[in-house]
Design a protein around this nucleic acid. Structure first.
Lengths: 224, 224
DNA sequence: ATATATTTTTAGACGAGCCTAATAATTATG
DNA sequence: CATAATTATTAGGCTCGTCTAAAAATATAT
């Protein structure tokens, strides 16, 4: 079943905003004022739209309660993000835009309506898995390849990731992890990469940044 | 000077519609009802917009009078057409859409705002001169390469063109032209091209179609 | 646990684009 | 040239997405 009702530009942006907020803050729920801030609009405006999105069964919402995307709302949000990221790849790889210039234009391109267009664009680009900022590109079925396990060494500068496992389960490595307070679920942000030896500077929650070796980074599995 | 005031999606469509109508009907002027028909909207709606476009000095208009694009209005209309046609080339050449499928998607893409995007897209496509339907692509300065003289042999099937001159001015050729009633300004439509010998079937105004040789087609200069 | 602060919703208004129905201007015709 | 037919404009209303200001609900803090 294709999405029967086409969404407006604005509705798509609300779904995307809600999705981003739930991702950013961990919780699947978010609030009126956060959405307003995200979209540079006013809370009263958001309330109006929330009612509309709830009518269309894209969010679960009752007044004064928290906001959560429904299955179909989440699906649609992810498809918009998929389009956004594929266009970013196009702009960067094919038109040589800097990675910092692509976002603004992709904000417009993401709303072009045509399934076929995105299917063909994806093929044209060689089925990229990440956009120029290192964010993963969801599949056509709207699934974020959740199992995209990569090593810490593969995380781009300035990107955050979450620890999901190790490659090397030797006692020394695990002990070292414990010592620096890294475990499953720990959020890590990559601050710097030294190309000389592959070592990197990373920051941990409520810790000052630390430096880790290439060997360390190669053995820590993370998701973005 | 860049166009200070950005136009809305809708305003751009009105300019484009007015421009197309003036092209189609020869005259630089058009009417409320023609615009309404072109845009599948109602005359009263058009009147509202005409006032707005006149305020912005994009059209010359006084109520109950004919409508004409100003210099800047025409410029903007041509730039929208430029974007439309470049996107059509992209869709056809790079994404392998059929020439009949590209229009609808290009209708959306033509409104993406970014000078730089179009500059780079044009370069990426190798500075094409015609879109997949054979319509010419205006330059970045908004000039329709009016002097795009090509030979009849280069006209695509189903496209119409206008005779502007000859390559071979021998008496025999000119006499032959006179005989089939082709002169400067004659409108010709290409019906068929025989790849075997390069001959083509063409139709002339109020005449049945005739067949002409490759040599003939190579020596007749036309514009699209 | 009650008063205060914060967040959210309602009420009312506005511009952009669109509509229908009624009116006015222009053009065509007898 | 006066009247009929056509075309264009006004008047008033609708939806969408936005706003401000005021009221209501929830959350916080003493």
């Amino acid at each position: 079943m294709k999405s029967a009702t086409l969404l407006s530009f604005t509705e798509e942006n609300y779904l995307k905003a809600i999705y981003s907020l739930t991702q950013k803050h961990g919780s699947p729920e978010t609030s009126t004022s956060h959405i307003a801030e995200q979209l540079s609009t006013k809370p009263s405006t958001v309330t109006d739209m929330l009612r509309k999105l709830a009518d269309k069964k894209l969010i679960a919402y009752e007044k004064y309660r928290k906001i959560e995307l429904t299955k179909s709302g989440k699906q649609l949000a992810i498809l918009v993000i998929r389009k956004h990221r594929l266009w970013e790849v196009f702009l960067h790889e094919k038109l040589q835009f800097g990675w910092d210039e692509v976002h603004e234009i992709a904000e417009q391109l993401e709303h072009i309506q045509s399934e076929e267009l995105i299917t063909r664009l994806e093929r044209f680009l060689g089925f990229p898995k990440f956009d120029p900022h290192g964010d993963p590109i969801p599949s056509a079925t709207g699934e974020l390849q959740a199992g995209q396990r990569i090593t810490l060494a593969d995380v781009q500068i300035n990107k955050s990731c979450e620890v999901v496992g190790v490659n090397d389960s030797s006692a020394v490595f695990l002990k070292y992890l414990q010592q620096v307070d890294i475990g499953i679920g720990t959020k890590i942000k990559v601050l710097e990469k030294i190309s000389f030896d592959g070592s990197m500077a990373i920051s941990l929650p409520r810790k000052v940044s630390i430096s880790v070796s290439k060997k360390f980074a190669d053995n820590l599995m993370v998701i973005l």
